[in-house]
Write a protein that binds this DNA or RNA. Structure first.
Lengths: 111, 111
DNA sequence: TTAACACTTCAATAATTGTTGAATAGTTAA
DNA sequence: TTAACTATTCAACAATTATTGAAGTGTTAA
């Protein structure tokens, strides 16, 4: 994963609202939720939620498909996996023995 | 890990400069680097680096100890571990089978 | 075909974050 | 003690992000 992608993902997760949205969608995987259900669950104004959904969608952390007049959002678990892998590599670089899951990253980066 | 802590950590990692600083300190664990060495390596004005070091220190992602007139910074790898564990839990909630069946080995340290 | 519905976009504004030079505080060497 | 050194804080400003009501787009049901 490129550094620029990683910072965008961290930026997406750096807001309490967006983290709540993502966690809610993970809980409701794989069927996801439509925007109105998210707004109801998190008690957010539609317009504000829409702002954060757009940010999450643009970072690719969630996906959206239209269903009639609804928009259905889903968590992108594969990308989250990749982010965890990136973070694990960052954590272990040059210090694999200090990380508890070191065996998940057999070839730590050396530069 | 509490949500509020997690968002603070993501916020810390959401800046390219701060991510560079953290990765540099991970590479130089466990001895760490003094502020001037970081500034030299990343070609940053001291005042700007200081701003980001403060943010990283306040989020506890790095630590600092005084050494004479130098300030030595170190990556907090234990906290990074906790963050990875939090993210893993978020990713897998209700969907454990979708996580960790794929190979987690990342492409090493691209920019 | 009209009205209600679901959601987003727009525009205005508020709030937060990032950057820089100048000033400051503490440390060490002459 | 004085001067150089290391790094941070301060103040000013620039840039980005967040929030909200009003308006707009597309969809469905009556």
């Amino acid at each position: 994963m490129e550094k620029q992608i990683a910072t965008t993902l961290f930026e997406s997760l750096a807001s309490g609202v967006r983290l709540d949205v993502f966690r809610l969608l993970v809980k409701n995987a794989p069927e996801g939720l439509v925007a109105g259900e998210i707004a109801l669950a998190l008690e957010l104004p539609a317009t504000n939620l829409s702002f954060h959904l757009k940010a999450l969608t643009q970072s690719n952390l969630i996906t959206v498909v239209q269903e009639g007049r609804y928009q259905r959002y889903r968590a992108n678990l594969e990308l989250m996996q990749e982010l965890i892998a990136y973070l694990t590599a960052e954590c272990c670089t040059g210090q694999a023995e200090l990380c508890f899951d070191a065996q998940l990253v057999p070839e730590c980066c050396s530069n």
